[in-house]
Every structure is written in structure tokens, then in C-alpha cells.
Nucleic acid binder design. Structure first.
Lengths: 159, 159
DNA sequence: TTTATTTATATCGCTTGCGACATTAAAATA
DNA sequence: TATTTTAATGTCGCAAGCGATATAAATAAA
């Protein structure tokens, strides 16, 4: 009994409590945020990761799998099945690279390109839905450079 | 051509670019952060979500599934299989509730409790590994109240 | 030019996460 | 008490993620 209390005193400073877990907050916020996209992505028939792929392709069509993966920080073991599903859904095509025959060039179909118009309102709608008091916006945006720093540090760490 | 440019001008203000996606940052940071836990969780033979369950049980043993789920913001369709795997791994037991026979009371096994000691160093190790310059710590911690606000807003939104 | 190495993609297996739905028991209401 | 509603758990199916591993093509090195 006394040993238990002693152990607590020297070992546990509360860092193993859920409330003190920075990562849990990140993990929860990310999950809930993806959930908040549902009302806007369901009508388009796409998931959030598929939306991310489309964002990349809308910026620049006809990219090899690895380039898209680099933007999204996802490896091919995630990208390939994801893209296969999008191909089956008629949003993209995957053709062999001409110069580098190993590559798969991902291109938007007419349908995939058409979704761009329907997606226009999403960022604004999400902003309104989530960061309800408009005044809070600036506070939330403060996180962006911090998240970017964190991501850069983690990219190196996981490399 | 001119129509394209016009459309761009009125519809696209760059919000559909990946760099302007707040959620993508959250999503990436959360994934990379979980990846950063691997070196510390693999030796314990647990995954990050399993670690979260243990955090909750280490705070308070013998809880029904729904209470753990409420803490982790996860529904039973996620919790049940997760707990079944943890039971199979010998970390917990799942017994029927006495007062409320619908409930499954989740209890730590000796093995599950023993992991508490081995987990003591994890928070500090993660901090050192990820937020490398100690000076940056305070900046990162600024995100906590903002993430909490965001999570609360999203909980209501997804409810 | 062989040979070794790296790169791009893919497959397999397993854990999560979650929408949809089913089941049973507790609680509330008629 | 009988009935309705709610709550706790579970199953099913599918989309992600990701470690491990395979394959083939491009590149570098010997």
C-alpha cells in the first residue's frame, strides 16, 4: 500500500492521463472534422481521403501516384487501393507512364473534373458550420503554422 | 477560355487548394503523431487506440464499454472489436454488469495493469522526440485550448 | 556492360473507424 | 401492468492506413 503511494509519487506526474494527451486531441479533432465533412461529401459520393486526392488533381491533373502520395503524405500501399476505388467510381483513370513505364499517371475523368464545381462551396460551408462564431476564426488559424511545424518535425521523425 | 478565367475569378479563391485545408493538417498531424508512437508502443505489443483504452482504464479500472467510449469519443461499433482484440491479447477481461446486465464491464488483467509501469516513460520520450526544441513546447501547448474548443464544437455538430 | 541499388507500384494481412442494422434489457409512459 | 422508448452492446460490410513483402523498371556503380 505504502509502496503503491510511493511509486505514484515518483513515477506518475499525471502525464498518463487522457486529459494531458496532446495526441489524443489531435486524433479526436481529426476524426470529428472528417465526420463534419460528411454532409458535404456524401452528396458528391466521395470520402474525405478521396476529396483530398481530388484537391491535388484539381490543382494539377495527370500526376503519377507517388507525387499525389507525397502531397498527401500517404504511401502507395494506401494510395493504390484508394485510387483503384476512385477509378471504379469513374472519377479518375490510371494510365501507364510514357517516359517511365513504372509510373501510373492519374488523370481526372470528365466526372471527376465536374465535381470541382460542386465542391466550390465546401470550404466556406465547413468554416461556417464548424467555427461557428466568426470571431473565433483568427484564433483557430493560429494553429496552422504550429501544425505545419509539427508535421515537418514528424515527417523527419517517421522517415 | 475566357469563361474558364471568369469562373476562376468568381468561384475559386484558393480555398480548394490543399495548402489552405485546415482539416488536412489535422488529419496529417494526427496520423504522423500516431506513427511516432510506434517505437514506444510496439515493445508493449499495443496499438495507439489500445493505448488510449489503457489510459482510461489506468485512471479508473472496471468501466462499462460505453463509459470508455464516451471518454475516447468512439462508438461501440469501434469499441467492441477493439476490446475483443485486447481481451484476446490478455490485457483486459469483459464481464457482464451486475446491476445492468446489458453492460460489459471492462477490467484490466494483471498483464494490462503491468503495462502501466512500462508506459511511464512514454509521454516524456514522445515530448523529447517530437517537440525537439524544448523552447517550442509552450507554443505547441497553446494549441490545446483551441483543439478542445474545436472538439467541443465538432461533438455538437456531429451529434 | 554487368551488377547493385533505388524507385514506382502493387498485394496481403491486420487494425481502425464508422454507417446501418439487430438484439436485449432497462426505463419511461400510458 | 402493458406498451413504448431509450440505452448498451453487438454484428456486418466497407474504406482507410500501414507494416511487410514482391515485382519490374530505371539508375547508379563497379
Amino acid at each position: 500500500m505504502r509502496r503503491e503511494r510511493y511509486k505514484w509519487a515518483i513515477m506518475d506526474n499525471g502525464q498518463l492521463k487522457l486529459e494531458n494527451q496532446f495526441c489524443f486531441r489531435l486524433y479526436s479533432a481529426a476524426r470529428l472534422m472528417m465526420g463534419a465533412y460528411h454532409p458535404y461529401l456524401d452528396p458528391l459520393g466521395i470520402t474525405y481521403p478521396q476529396y483530398l486526392v481530388l484537391l491535388v488533381l484539381w490543382e494539377q491533373d495527370k500526376q503519377p501516384v507517388c507525387d499525389i502520395g507525397k502531397r498527401l503524405l500517404l504511401d502507395t500501399n494506401t494510395m493504390t487501393p484508394l485510387l483503384q476505388r476512385m477509378e471504379k467510381a469513374g472519377l479518375i483513370t490510371r494510365t501507364r507512364g510514357k517516359e517511365d513505364t513504372r509510373q501510373r499517371i492519374v488523370s481526372l475523368t470528365k466526372q471527376g473534373r465536374a465535381l470541382y464545381e460542386q465542391a466550390q462551396h465546401i470550404p466556406e460551408d465547413m468554416r461556417k458550420a464548424v467555427m461557428m462564431p466568426e470571431s473565433k476564426m483568427e484564433e483557430f488559424l493560429q494553429m496552422i503554422p504550429l501544425l505545419d511545424q509539427l508535421i515537418e518535425a514528424l515527417k523527419k521523425l517517421n522517415a
